[in-house]
Amino acid sequence: MNFPEVPPADTPAPRLRQRMACFLYEGVLLFGVVMIAGLFYGIVTRQTHALVGTAGLRAFLFAVLGVYFVYFWWRSGQTLAMQTWHIRLVTRDGQPVRPLRALCRYLLAWLWFLPALAAVWLSGLTGSGVTFGALSAGVIAYAGLVWLHPQRQFFHDAVCGTRLISWKLPPRKARGKTTAPNS
């Protein structure tokens, strides 16, 4: 773990717009992670047809995404997208997140998607348009819950005892570099 310092307890939460932009950027980055993991799974299992072994592939991708998030949240408190948008995950008191708490947050973060997917499944409706519409509405509704929390944290953060903060690393100082006088 390489946390540079413990942030003050009153460090503000990032704006919802900033968090949603980070959410979208994370999706773009995860597309590559999922594609590489899916290729690896297909090679290892010698999958010759896309519809064979889909349950195993889903479980494998769920585990890969879990490792990705838990590792980055534990190691530095930031995924690659969070670094770009200057957002950091810490505990309520500003300490680094431990692996078990990061795993709990990963599992509960699926609340972004599961209610909408369950509603589509229970309704019996099919089609990518219906699924996309339900997921969009579910994400907007879940993001709106942030206004119910006094520190503007997401539900899964409130339950797990974590919080997102605005965090920009201080600039690195030149280490051991001295400038020689002009001769």
Rank of each mutant, 00 (worst) to 15 (best):
residue 119 A to D: 02
residue 76 S to Q: 14
residue 87 I to E: 07
residue 166 S to I: 02
residue 129 G to D: 10
residue 37 A to H: 07
residue 147 W to A: 14
residue 63 A to E: 01
residue 1 M to H: 14
residue 109 A to L: 02
residue 164 L to A: 07
residue 170 P to C: 00
residue 172 R to C: 09
residue 16 L to F: 12
residue 97 V to D: 04
residue 36 I to L: 15
residue 172 R to V: 15
residue 110 W to H: 15
residue 181 P to T: 12
residue 3 F to S: 03
residue 101 R to L: 03
residue 148 L to F: 07
residue 34 V to A: 13
residue 67 V to F: 14
residue 41 Y to C: 08
residue 63 A to T: 05
residue 87 I to T: 06
residue 22 C to L: 05
residue 108 L to E: 04
residue 5 E to M: 08
residue 106 Y to D: 03
residue 138 G to T: 10
residue 1 M to E: 13
residue 13 A to P: 13
residue 11 T to E: 10
residue 57 L to E: 13
residue 119 A to Q: 03
residue 173 K to N: 09
residue 149 H to Y: 00
residue 181 P to C: 05
residue 13 A to E: 12
residue 76 S to A: 13
residue 72 F to E: 08
residue 60 F to S: 09
residue 108 L to W: 07
residue 14 P to E: 11
residue 133 G to Q: 03
residue 66 G to Y: 00
residue 87 I to G: 03
residue 176 G to S: 13
residue 107 L to P: 11
residue 157 D to R: 05
residue 147 W to T: 14
residue 33 V to H: 09
residue 48 T to P: 00
residue 97 V to E: 05
residue 167 W to D: 01
residue 142 Y to V: 04
residue 18 Q to H: 04
residue 72 F to W: 14
residue 76 S to H: 11
residue 11 T to R: 12
residue 60 F to A: 11
residue 45 T to L: 10
residue 53 G to N: 09
residue 61 L to D: 00
residue 127 G to E: 08
residue 23 F to P: 00
residue 90 V to Y: 00
residue 76 S to I: 12
residue 50 A to D: 08
residue 169 L to F: 05
residue 100 L to K: 12
residue 137 A to M: 11
residue 8 P to R: 10
residue 74 W to I: 06
residue 153 Q to M: 11
residue 137 A to E: 04
residue 145 L to C: 12
residue 95 Q to T: 14
residue 170 P to Q: 01
residue 138 G to H: 10
residue 31 F to Q: 12
residue 144 G to E: 03
residue 177 K to I: 13
residue 178 T to M: 10
residue 130 V to W: 11
residue 42 G to F: 01
residue 164 L to Y: 09
residue 64 V to T: 02
residue 14 P to T: 07
residue 164 L to T: 02
residue 43 I to L: 15
residue 31 F to P: 11
residue 15 R to Q: 14
residue 120 V to G: 02
residue 20 M to L: 15
residue 135 L to I: 14
residue 29 L to M: 08
residue 34 V to C: 11
residue 90 V to T: 15
residue 44 V to K: 05
residue 110 W to A: 15
residue 169 L to R: 15
residue 74 W to C: 05
residue 160 C to T: 15
residue 155 F to P: 08
residue 33 V to T: 08
residue 100 L to T: 09
residue 179 T to E: 07
residue 97 V to F: 06
residue 106 Y to I: 00
residue 127 G to Y: 10
residue 84 T to Q: 06
residue 181 P to I: 10
residue 23 F to I: 01
residue 10 D to L: 04
residue 154 F to H: 09
residue 150 P to C: 01
residue 96 P to N: 03
residue 73 W to I: 02
residue 120 V to Q: 02
residue 87 I to N: 06
residue 139 V to G: 00
residue 53 G to E: 08
residue 61 L to C: 05
residue 124 G to I: 03
